[in-house]
C-alpha cells in the first residue's frame, strides 16, 4: 500500500517539476516579449514625437509663408482687399424659377382625396 502511495507521489512530484519548469520558461518568454513590446512602444513614441514636431513645423504660418513667397509670381497671392469682401445682403436673389404650381396643387388634391396616382401606376405595372 505504502509503496503505491510512494510511487504515486514520485510521479506527482515529477509532473510538478516538469510543470513548474515549463511555467518558468513560459513566463520568461512572456517577460521578454513584454520588454520587447515596451521597447517598441518607446521607439514608436520617439518617432511619433518627431513626426508631431514635424507636423507642427510644417503647419506654422511662417513656414507656409516662406513656401509661398518664391512662387508668388505664379500664385499671385495678396492681402485680401476690402472690396473683395461681400455680405449675404450684397448677393442678388436667385432668379425666380417657373414652377407649375397648378399641376402640383392638382396632385396634392388627388392624394388628399385618397387616390395615389403613382401608387396605382406601380400597381398597374405589377
Amino acid at each position: 500500500m505504502i509503496r503505491i502511495v510512494n510511487i504515486f507521489l514520485a510521479i506527482v512530484s515529477m509532473v510538478a517539476l516538469v510543470g513548474v519548469y515549463a511555467q518558468k520558461h513560459i513566463s520568461e518568454t512572456t517577460a521578454e516579449e513584454v520588454v520587447r513590446l515596451e521597447r517598441a512602444i518607446e521607439d514608436k513614441q520617439e518617432q511619433l514625437s518627431i513626426l508631431r514636431a514635424d507636423w507642427a513645423y510644417l503647419n506654422q504660418p511662417n513656414h507656409i509663408q516662406a513656401l509661398v513667397r518664391p512662387h508668388n509670381e505664379v500664385l499671385g497671392m495678396q492681402v485680401a482687399q476690402v472690396r473683395q469682401f461681400v455680405t449675404f445682403d450684397d448677393l442678388p436673389m436667385r432668379p425666380q424659377m417657373r414652377l407649375d404650381t397648378q399641376a402640383l396643387d392638382d396632385l396634392f388634391e388627388t392624394i388628399e382625396a385618397g387616390e395615389d396616382p403613382i401608387g396605382s401606376l406601380l400597381e398597374g405595372l405589377l
Binding site: Q45, E46, S49, I50, A53, A56, N59
Partner: peptide, 10 residues
Amino acid sequence: GLEMAVDIRV
C-alpha cells in the same frame, strides 16, 4: 490648437 512648443525624445 497649433503647437508652439513640443517635446521630442532624443
